[in-house]
């Protein structure tokens, strides 16, 4: 399997937050969801990978080349959470600045996006709504034949219609062989529909990763009576919650749980279930430590 992006031993230390020994690889042709709660380290990881933040340690490679080779960015499309555009410029002026930076700018593709999204090229960026800005960012990121698309919280703050549109565009983008998407978000429902691979980050550390379907199949959300929650069961759970109606928890040993609690309900987890239970376990472990 070839990797389009590889991060090894990435470290970045701030006074109140640290990225610790982050290792991750993006396999070619996959949509990788990078999930985690706000402040988990998603943006710091992405910005470090792109060279916007200088890491304290670690190695970052794109398409086998060191990230210090800035030419590699000709093959990467980027959409950041804060859309860093010069707001006083018109869309056309902004596009001209971006277009002339890339070796393989595809004006036809760009114009296709402009008419598809009905973007007013003569309007100033500051006059656009958040949804329109996102569409403009997509148009810029996908018009230079990028092999890798990196997006940091692209759906955050967008209405469901624009989010659905973005997912459609990603599906279209992925139709061309060899293309890869790295998609950071805390809105996991978007990834249910599109992701092939998941990476979960919390407190600056990768705490879970794997193929989405395999992770969902290997885990189960257990629901049972609170009285049946003994130590043996607790050991088989990634995390659990007890309320007036009973308990619910996430397990990666469905067979054993079923043998011990034949009456318990075991459901297929959502990505959000995986994220919440693993993050809660990570926080509990950090507190007990």
């Amino acid at each position: 399997m070839s990797y389009v992006m590889e991060i090894r031993g990435l470290e970045k230390h701030y006074t109140d937050f640290s990225l610790c020994n982050v290792d991750l690889s993006l396999a070619e042709g996959m949509v990788t969801g990078f999930i985690g709660v706000n402040g988990a380290g998603k943006t710091t990881t992405i910005k470090s990978a792109l060279g916007l933040i200088i890491p304290d340690a670690g190695e970052i490679r794109f398409f086998g080349n060191s990230c210090s080779d800035h030419n590699v960015k000709n093959r990467i499309g980027v959409i950041l959470d804060i859309q860093n555009f010069y707001e006083m410029l018109t869309l056309k002026e902004m596009k001209n600045i971006v277009a002339k930076s890339f070796k393989k700018w595809d004006e036809r593709a760009y114009q296709g996006f402009i008419s598809r999204f009905e973007l007013p090229e003569r309007k100033k960026i500051k006059e656009l709504s958040k949804g329109m800005r996102m569409k403009f960012a997509i148009a810029l990121a996908l018009s230079h034949n990028a092999d890798l698309l990196i997006m940091d919280e692209p759906t955050s703050g967008l209405d469901p219609l624009v989010r659905a549109e973005l997912l459609d565009i990603l599906r279209e983008y992925m139709r061309t062989e060899g293309r890869t998407v790295f998609f950071s978000t805390h809105i996991t429902s978007d990834l249910d529909k599109i992701a092939d691979y998941l990476i979960l980050i919390d407190n600056g550390r990768i705490i879970m990763q794997g193929e989405k379907d395999a992770l969902i199949d290997s885990h189960g959300v257990v629901k049972g009576h609170a009285g049946s929650l003994n130590d043996e069961i607790k050991k088989l759970l990634v995390g659990f919650r007890v309320n007036a109606f009973g308990f619910s928890g996430l397990t990666h040993n469905k067979a054993k749980i079923h043998a011990l609690l034949p009456d318990a309900l075991i459901e297929k987890p959502s990505i959000e279930d995986l994220m919440l239970y693993y993050v809660r376990r990570d926080h509990d472990a950090a507190q007990s430590y």
């Binding site: 916007l52 800035h70 000709n74 990467i76 010069y86 006083m88 971006v98 890339f102």
Partner: peptide, 21 residues
């Protein structure tokens, strides 16, 4: 000022330019 206000350095950082350039 415009670079700082609009986070222009972050935008340029995503484009194929070295910091030296």
């Amino acid at each position: 000022q415009m670079d700082d206000r609009c986070k222009g350095s972050a935008l340029l950082g995503t484009l194929p330019y070295s910091r030296k350039q």
